[in-house]
Computed example of a mutant assay.
Amino acid sequence: MPYGRIYGGQVLAQSVVAASRTVGEDRPIHSMHGYFLRPGNAAQGLTFSVDRLRDGRSFSARRTQAFQDGVPIFSMIASFQTQDDGVEHAVPAPGVPGPDDLPDPLAEGTSSRRRLRDSPIELRHVPGSLYTDVPAERQPHQAVWLRTRREMPEDPLVHRAALAYLSDMTIQESILRAHGLTWYSPGLNVASLDHAMWWHRPARADEWLLYVQESPTARGGRGLANGRIYTRDGLLVASVAQEVMVRVPSEG
C-alpha cells in the first residue's frame, strides 16, 4: 500500500485464519465484524491474539486482535457454525458484461499499471476503473470482476480468507463515484473504518467473482458502502458492509 501501510484486507484475512484455527473444520466462519483501529506498518510483523468467547452445540464465537508494537491495529469478533439445512433464497446477480468483455486496467495509465502489476488480484471494472479517469456519470454504485492471479490450494479456509482479502478491495469506490472522484484526486484521503462480512456459500477466490457495490449515504467525512459477491454463474456467496473515512479538500 502507499506510504508503507499494510492493506487492511490482508490483516482481515489473516485474522480470519487465526480465529478459524481455534475452531474445528466442521464449523466454517459465517460472519465477522471488525474495526480498523490504527494503520499498520508494512515494515513490521503482526501478532494475532484469539480469545475463545463461546462454543455451543452449533455456533462458536471468537475475538481476534492484530497487534503491532504492543497495541491493536485491528479487532474483530467472528462467528462459526456447523453445516445445517434451512430455508434458502438469494438476490440474483445483475446483468453486466463478463470479465472477458472488459478492458484490463493494466492497459491504462503508467501509474496505475505500476501499482496493479505487482498485485496478486486481477480486476475488471463495470464501468471503467477510477485509477485515471474521472467517472463520466456521478453514480453511487459499480460492479467489479475480480480473482487471484494464480491458482490457490484446495483448502476451503484459504478461499474463505482470500474472499475476505478481496472484500476490502474497491468497495470504497462506490462512494468516490458518487462525487466524481478518482484515486488520484488531489488531497483525497480514504481509510476503512470498520468492516462486516457474511459468508453464505462456498466459492473459489481463484475463479472470477462479481463484486456488486453501492453507497446508500455519505456524511460527516464518512461514507457507507455495501457489497454482494457472486460467482460467475450468479450464485450469491458473500455480503459485505464497510464504513469509510473520505476526506477531500474544501473548495475555495
Rank of each mutant, 00 (worst) to 15 (best):
P2G: 01
G4V: 11
Q14V: 07
V17G: 00
A19S: 15
A19T: 11
V23T: 01
P28Y: 14
S31A: 15
S31C: 10
F36P: 01
R38N: 04
P39N: 02
G40P: 09
N41G: 00
N41V: 15
A42F: 07
Q44M: 08
L46S: 12
G56I: 09
F59C: 00
A61M: 03
R62S: 02
Q65L: 09
F67C: 02
G70F: 08
P72Y: 13
I73Q: 08
S79E: 05
T82N: 11
D84W: 02
D85E: 13
E88N: 14
A90L: 03
P94Q: 10
P94N: 14
P94V: 10
P97G: 08
D101L: 09
L102H: 04
D104N: 14
A107Q: 15
R114W: 02
D118N: 11
E122V: 03
E122S: 13
L123K: 06
H125N: 13
V126F: 03
V126D: 09
V126I: 15
G128S: 08
S129P: 12
Y131C: 01
T132S: 14
D133L: 14
A136E: 12
Q139K: 15
A143P: 01
R147I: 01
R149H: 02
R149L: 07
M152H: 05
M152C: 03
E154V: 05
P156A: 05
L157R: 09
V158L: 13
R160M: 01
A164H: 05
L166R: 11
L166C: 13
S167N: 10
S167W: 09
T170W: 08
E173N: 14
E173G: 01
L176I: 07
R177I: 06
A178I: 05
L181S: 06
T182L: 09
W183R: 07
Y184R: 12
P186C: 01
G187C: 07
N189Y: 10
V190D: 04
V190I: 15
M197G: 02
M197T: 00
W198R: 07
W199H: 13
A205M: 00
D206P: 06
E214T: 01
G223E: 10
R232S: 15
D233K: 06
L235G: 03
L235E: 13
A241S: 15
Q242M: 12
E243L: 08
V244D: 00
R247P: 07
V248C: 10
P249H: 12
P249L: 14
E251F: 11
G252K: 06
G252T: 12
